[in-house]
Simulated assay, not measured.
Amino acid sequence: MDKVEQILSLIKPFVEEGKILPRTYDQIAENIDDFVFLRNFDKLVACVGLKDCKEGEMGEIYALAVSKDAQNQGFSTKLLDKIMQKARISNFSKIFALTKYNQQWFVNNGFVQTSIDKIPKRRQALFDHQRNSSIFFKDVK
């Protein structure tokens, strides 16, 4: 199974629950460099993408998933550390995430809830108002 298939397999239960937006094989493959991964005993247990918004030195976190078998073992914190490192290397000043679930995790990890007008204009245009996601920002240090 290649990396794209592993990501799709990892996020599938969360997509089915409506917690992560569905993505195709081609969408993941075209953006595979956005992703950071965590493995446990050579099995993919966590991933997250960081998309360059090409506006305002901001990156968007997406498809953050920790397998159900690996939850509550510190993988989400390690994943956040890796994505922050990637954000620094990419010279982002801020990262943000849109979510309907686990808002407390974002708050506990230094994110601040904000309004849609704070995200890049191009991203605002794609915002799904019916989904009604919360928006969380974090400064990259």
Rank of each mutant, 00 (worst) to 15 (best):
residue 119 I to A: 06
residue 80 L to P: 00
residue 94 K to C: 10
residue 65 A to Y: 05
residue 28 I to G: 02
residue 127 F to H: 06
residue 77 T to V: 12
residue 38 L to C: 03
residue 136 F to G: 04
residue 101 Y to M: 00
residue 101 Y to A: 00
residue 137 F to E: 14
residue 45 V to G: 05
residue 57 E to Y: 12
residue 104 Q to L: 03
residue 68 K to W: 07
residue 47 C to G: 06
residue 112 V to I: 13
residue 1 M to C: 11
residue 11 I to P: 07
residue 139 D to P: 09
residue 9 S to K: 13
residue 120 P to N: 11
residue 68 K to M: 10
residue 23 R to E: 02
residue 135 I to M: 04
residue 16 E to M: 13
residue 79 L to H: 01
residue 112 V to G: 03
residue 41 F to K: 15
residue 24 T to V: 09
residue 28 I to T: 05
residue 77 T to M: 08
residue 102 N to V: 01
residue 19 K to V: 03
residue 138 K to L: 06
residue 66 V to I: 12
residue 121 K to S: 10
residue 113 Q to E: 15
residue 118 K to Y: 10
residue 83 I to W: 01
residue 91 N to M: 08
residue 111 F to Y: 13
residue 66 V to R: 01
residue 101 Y to I: 02
residue 103 Q to I: 06
residue 63 A to K: 03
residue 115 S to A: 07
residue 78 K to T: 02
residue 129 H to Y: 14
residue 71 Q to L: 04
residue 50 L to F: 08
residue 83 I to M: 06
residue 6 Q to E: 15
residue 124 Q to A: 08
residue 3 K to L: 15
residue 125 A to Y: 04
residue 99 T to N: 05
residue 126 L to H: 14
residue 111 F to D: 02
residue 45 V to Y: 08
residue 86 K to S: 00
residue 126 L to R: 15
residue 90 S to C: 05
residue 54 K to Q: 14
residue 58 M to I: 07
residue 35 F to Q: 00
residue 103 Q to W: 05
residue 104 Q to G: 01
residue 90 S to Q: 05
residue 17 E to Q: 15
residue 113 Q to A: 12
residue 58 M to K: 08
residue 123 R to Y: 15
residue 99 T to V: 07
residue 52 D to L: 08
residue 90 S to A: 09
residue 96 F to W: 05
residue 127 F to D: 01
residue 113 Q to T: 12
residue 97 A to P: 06
residue 26 D to R: 10
residue 109 N to C: 07
residue 117 D to K: 11
residue 104 Q to I: 03
residue 15 V to Y: 10
residue 55 E to G: 11
residue 38 L to E: 01
residue 102 N to F: 02
residue 6 Q to V: 13
residue 91 N to P: 07
residue 83 I to P: 00
residue 93 S to E: 14
residue 32 I to G: 12
residue 107 V to R: 15
residue 122 R to E: 12
residue 115 S to D: 10
residue 133 S to T: 15
residue 130 Q to K: 14
residue 64 L to E: 01
residue 41 F to A: 12
residue 72 N to S: 07
residue 3 K to N: 12
residue 111 F to H: 03
residue 85 Q to F: 07
residue 19 K to W: 10
residue 112 V to Q: 12
residue 127 F to A: 02
residue 40 N to P: 02
residue 102 N to K: 00
residue 13 P to L: 11
residue 29 A to L: 14
residue 85 Q to S: 08
residue 41 F to T: 06
residue 31 N to F: 10
residue 64 L to Q: 01
residue 63 A to E: 00
residue 112 V to W: 03
residue 59 G to F: 02
residue 131 R to K: 14
residue 17 E to S: 13
residue 102 N to S: 05
residue 104 Q to R: 04
residue 20 I to S: 08
residue 100 K to R: 14
residue 49 G to I: 00
residue 72 N to H: 07
residue 50 L to Q: 03
residue 90 S to W: 04
residue 28 I to E: 01
residue 113 Q to R: 15
residue 89 I to L: 11
residue 25 Y to P: 09
residue 97 A to F: 05
residue 60 E to K: 13
residue 10 L to M: 13
residue 52 D to S: 09
residue 4 V to N: 04
residue 117 D to F: 11
residue 57 E to K: 12
residue 29 A to Y: 14
residue 84 M to K: 01
residue 90 S to L: 03
residue 123 R to W: 15
residue 141 K to F: 14
residue 116 I to G: 03
residue 58 M to H: 04
residue 2 D to M: 11
residue 22 P to I: 07
residue 119 I to Y: 05
residue 47 C to V: 08
